[in-house]
Design a protein around this nucleic acid. Structure first.
Lengths: 156, 156
DNA sequence: TCCATACAGTCGACCAGGTTGTCCACCATG
DNA sequence: CATGGTGGACAACCTGGTCGACTGTATGGA
């Protein structure tokens, strides 16, 4: 009967696993025409695509202030991933939309993630990978897109 | 035969798993007398305990500049987790040591991590948990303590 | 109809934690 | 004993958060 590892290994392995996948994703995205996309931009673009179309809404989804969301939108606008337009029905609001470049990055990310998952399946076996995902689903919150991730790690 | 989930679920589950563990650790640490310890401080204290006893050495271990390591040490010194003393054999060096408070936080972290791991084992089964850890070991770098994590997520 | 309130966005000040560059004091070697 | 490498500190800067204050635009109730 195998002995259990110390408890601190588990969170570190989870973080390293995340890092490996995200690092490889962004190395590949850089090769495919998206060299200045940062890890967190992916989450932001996902949130925008899924309907967070204003700074306030995006801030709520990501768990940051509307000002922080506004700054991130500004960055992504400067990089050409999103564009802003006025809402004709409520002139206070500015609607954020993905550009073709932004959509392209998400399409490519999706494909790369699938490829990376297939590589993991080769290493640990497809059945074990499905079990790993199923097990993680049991111990993590159900909502995939409520990450609260920006500024979480070092934040106050 | 079950169908595979989209590839992007895997990294998010890994990150969420990490977050769940770290959030619960720090909630418990706050209850046990360490309310102002931040997630990344744990990694820094670990690195110090494992022998990174100067700013330069700590920076090398954590993958950041010596200046950044120095700032972090300053913060932990202000919070009472480490103390600095001059090296009598090399007056340039300032040795960083854990205080009793710092050691206490690591001892408690270890215990809490073990408890959290036991809770996961109850949910998904001890054998499945060991398999999960073994599988992650196959797809992540071997060195647990070379995280390069400070400033990684949003960094340039 | 008008006014009070709610709300979207922006600006400014601040902070944390990273970076690079520079400098100084010290050690170690030839 | 000069010289090169090293540990630490300082300054300037960047990013990406925070909060508070302010503007302008709905919107619903008196």
């Amino acid at each position: 009967m195998p002995s259990d590892p110390p408890g601190f290994e588990l969170p570190i392995r989870l973080l390293l696993g995340f890092r490996v996948l995200i690092d490889e994703l962004h190395a590949e995205l850089a090769r495919q025409g998206h060299p200045d996309l940062r890890p967190m931009h992916g989450f932001v673009l996902q949130a925008i695509m899924r309907g967070s179309d204003t700074a306030v809404e995006l801030g709520r989804t990501l768990g940051v202030s509307k000002q922080a969301a506004g700054k991130t939108i500004e960055t992504l606008e400067r990089l050409g991933y999103v564009e802003r337009a006025c809402d004709p029905r409520d002139t206070r609001r500015k609607i954020v939309r993905l550009t073709a470049h932004g959509t392209d990055s998400l399409v490519r990310s999706e494909r790369v993630f699938d490829e990376l998952r297939a590589r993991w399946a080769e290493v640990i076996g497809p059945q074990r990978l499905r079990e790993l995902e199923a097990d993680l689903r049991k111990v993590t919150p159900p909502d995939l897109f409520r990450l609260d991730v920006p500024g979480w790690f070092g934040a106050q």
